[in-house]
Amino acid sequence: MADDKDQPFLDDIDALEAEIEAEEVADEDGLLTPEDMQAEIDALKDRLIRALAEGENIRKRAERDRRDAEMYGGTKLARDLLSVHDNLSRALETIDDSLREQAGGLVEGLELTQRELLSVFERHRVVMVAPEIGDRFDAKLHQAMFEAPVPNTQKGSIIQVMAPGFTIGDRLLRAAHVGVSSNTAPAAEPKKTDAET
Rank of each mutant, 00 (worst) to 15 (best):
D80R: 14
L172P: 00
D4A: 14
D80T: 10
S119R: 15
I133H: 00
V126T: 06
G109M: 02
R61N: 14
D65V: 10
E21G: 08
S98L: 09
E21D: 14
S98H: 10
D138Y: 02
N183H: 04
G109C: 03
A187H: 00
D65F: 09
L172S: 03
A2N: 07
V84A: 12
K5H: 07
E132V: 06
E108F: 10
A148H: 13
L31D: 08
A130N: 09
A15T: 11
A187I: 11
E19H: 09
G169V: 05
T153K: 01
D97S: 08
K155S: 12
T184K: 06
A43S: 08
S98V: 12
A91K: 02
E56D: 13
N87G: 05
R47Q: 12
L117P: 01
R47T: 07
L32I: 07
L16M: 11
S182L: 01
G156T: 10
A139E: 15
M1W: 07
M145K: 12
A130W: 03
T184S: 06
T113K: 04
L82K: 05
D11G: 06
A91L: 01
D12R: 13
V178F: 00
D46K: 15
A53L: 09
R174Q: 14
D135V: 06
H85R: 11
R136M: 08
G179L: 03
E108D: 15
G74D: 11
E40W: 04
D3K: 10
F9E: 12
L112P: 00
L173N: 01
D27G: 12
Q143Y: 14
L10G: 04
I168D: 04
T193K: 06
I13Y: 07
D36N: 13
M37T: 09
H142K: 03
L118N: 00
L110H: 03
A175K: 15
L16T: 12
D12M: 11
A103R: 13
A39Y: 06
P186M: 02
G169Y: 00
L118H: 01
G104Q: 11
V25R: 14
R115P: 00
P164C: 03
N57K: 15
L77W: 02
T193D: 10
G179E: 08
G169W: 01
